[in-house]
Amino acid sequence: MNLAISRPAVQAKPRVKPSRDMLMAVLVLIPSIVAVAVFIYSFIGWTIWISAVNWNSSIPDFTFVALQNWRIMLENSRFLTDLRNLAMYAFGFIAQCLVFGFLLAAFLDQQIKGESIFRTIFIFPFAVSAIVTGVAWKWIMRPDAGLNLLLDGAGLGAFKSLWYSHPTFGVMFITIAASWQFVGYIMALYLAGLRGISNEVREAAMIDGCGQVTLYRHIIIPMLSGITFTAIVLTGMGAIRAFDIIAAMSGSGQAFSTDTLALHMFEQTFLADRYSLSAVIGAVMIIISSVLVVPYLISTRKEVEQ
């Protein structure tokens, strides 16, 4: 990736003795470093530690059992269903957000009339809480109401669906609601990116005989790859921690078809008192998140260094 083309290179500074400025900088940073260390990293460490002890009842028990809880979880059919659901949810959510977010942004970028009105409309769902989104879409997608009644009324009964209560693909339908809510934000990201591509680039391409499709496919989309990367990280994280919208819409669903790691962790903790097993789920969520975030951090770091 050629992320740094337009960025001025940071000049390597000669090493200097710690100045007053440096001291101030360190002093100012200490509170946030301490806060991050305590509230993020120490809790991650704590979660991983709990996942290795035997605290699976209401009485704390810190007997070290190594990977026993991990083995139990890996044999737990609900947990495996959760992983499958995560894969489906992440795929559906990321794909819809990226595709529709980009299309909306490209549409707004055509210097259309009333752009600001459209922009507001598109980004509006982002202001709605996930609970409200979930409840509204629950009414739309209820098998005995909403869309199915409309389809019946229009004589299209053949297209009726179980929607989110489908025993296998229910979770995919939930991503429709989740994407509806989040797509405006992705659109804003892409729009900012599109606005940053200078007209010269487009004009130069046009002069070289490049059509609209080719322009987007070979020039604009590659130039926006940094934004796409950010969008994938954001939506991917959203998929991993999915909880509220699903809790409002379908709960765990039929045979856990719409269950998520977070819902499962919630029940293991608060209904079953299995703190160590739920810590395993938490740790798995951290690991999956870091698979997404670490490459992002590395890429931004490289960019700063260049």
Partner: peptide, 14 residues
């Protein structure tokens, strides 16, 4: 590239 903007947005979201 507008990576600065995206990163700012990213941080804003965080």
């Amino acid at each position: 590239m507008k990576n600065t903007i995206t990163r700012r947005k990213f941080l804003a979201t965080v």
